[in-house]
Amino acid sequence: MRETTRRIFITRSIASGCVVLAAPALTHAAPSRVEEADDTAVALGYKHDTQKVDRQRYPKHSSAQLCSNCSFFQGGAGDAWGGCAMFGRKHIAAAGWCAAWAKKPG
């Protein structure tokens, strides 16, 4: 009887260890993406594609202005999506644009 209890203890210990080791991988899920209909996105005129920005509402917008060349973009060079200081933990499209666009220094 004692051996069965030891086996159960060892099995449960191993299973618990696997859960502890897998937990960090579960917390690194991809961040959600900003939807154009989100309140902040609407307020900033955000579009996933800079070519689809309302030119009448934003006459100073240029198609050369992309999220990827904005100082608030937190993605790396070549990333299709990345973080943005304006949108908290959500990611934005590198090819997108919003009214908070500011030229990246350098």
Results as ranks from 00 to 15, higher is better:
102 A>P: 01
74 Q>C: 03
58 Y>S: 03
22 A>D: 02
101 W>Y: 00
79 D>Q: 09
72 F>L: 09
45 G>W: 03
78 G>Q: 04
39 D>G: 05
14 I>N: 00
92 I>T: 08
65 Q>R: 07
47 K>Y: 06
34 V>F: 02
10 I>T: 10
51 Q>W: 06
22 A>F: 08
35 E>F: 07
89 R>N: 15
90 K>E: 05
11 T>L: 13
66 L>Q: 10
53 V>S: 01
50 T>L: 03
86 M>F: 01
74 Q>N: 13
56 Q>G: 15
52 K>C: 05
18 C>L: 14
74 Q>R: 09
83 G>L: 00
18 C>F: 13
14 I>H: 02
92 I>N: 00
35 E>W: 04
37 A>K: 15
65 Q>H: 08
103 K>A: 12
102 A>H: 08
102 A>F: 02
106 G>D: 06
33 R>I: 12
54 D>S: 02
27 T>L: 15
64 A>P: 02
8 I>F: 09
51 Q>Y: 11
6 R>Y: 07
84 C>L: 05
3 E>H: 14
85 A>K: 15
61 H>W: 05
24 P>A: 06
12 R>L: 14
22 A>W: 11
58 Y>V: 02
65 Q>M: 15
15 A>M: 04
76 G>W: 06
81 W>C: 04
77 A>Q: 12
43 A>I: 07
7 R>D: 06
106 G>C: 05
76 G>H: 12
12 R>K: 15
50 T>E: 09
95 A>Y: 09
50 T>N: 08
73 F>N: 04
32 S>L: 14
77 A>M: 12
105 P>V: 06
101 W>A: 07
88 G>W: 01
5 T>Y: 07
46 Y>P: 00
6 R>W: 14
7 R>C: 07
80 A>F: 11
42 V>G: 01
5 T>S: 11
8 I>R: 10
85 A>R: 15
57 R>T: 12
27 T>N: 09
1 M>L: 11
68 S>E: 10
83 G>R: 01
27 T>W: 15
6 R>C: 05
79 D>A: 08
36 E>Y: 10
103 K>D: 08
64 A>E: 14
42 V>K: 05
75 G>Y: 00
106 G>P: 02
15 A>G: 07
37 A>R: 15
83 G>T: 09
103 K>Q: 14
100 A>Y: 10
31 P>L: 03
8 I>N: 08
62 S>G: 04
76 G>Q: 13
13 S>Q: 03
7 R>L: 15
32 S>K: 12
66 L>T: 09
69 N>T: 03
89 R>H: 15
41 A>C: 12
7 R>A: 13
52 K>T: 01
13 S>E: 02
66 L>N: 05
37 A>I: 13
56 Q>E: 07
80 A>M: 14
105 P>C: 00
43 A>S: 13
75 G>Q: 12
4 T>C: 04
65 Q>T: 07
46 Y>W: 00
99 A>I: 04
86 M>S: 13
87 F>E: 00
78 G>S: 10
106 G>H: 12
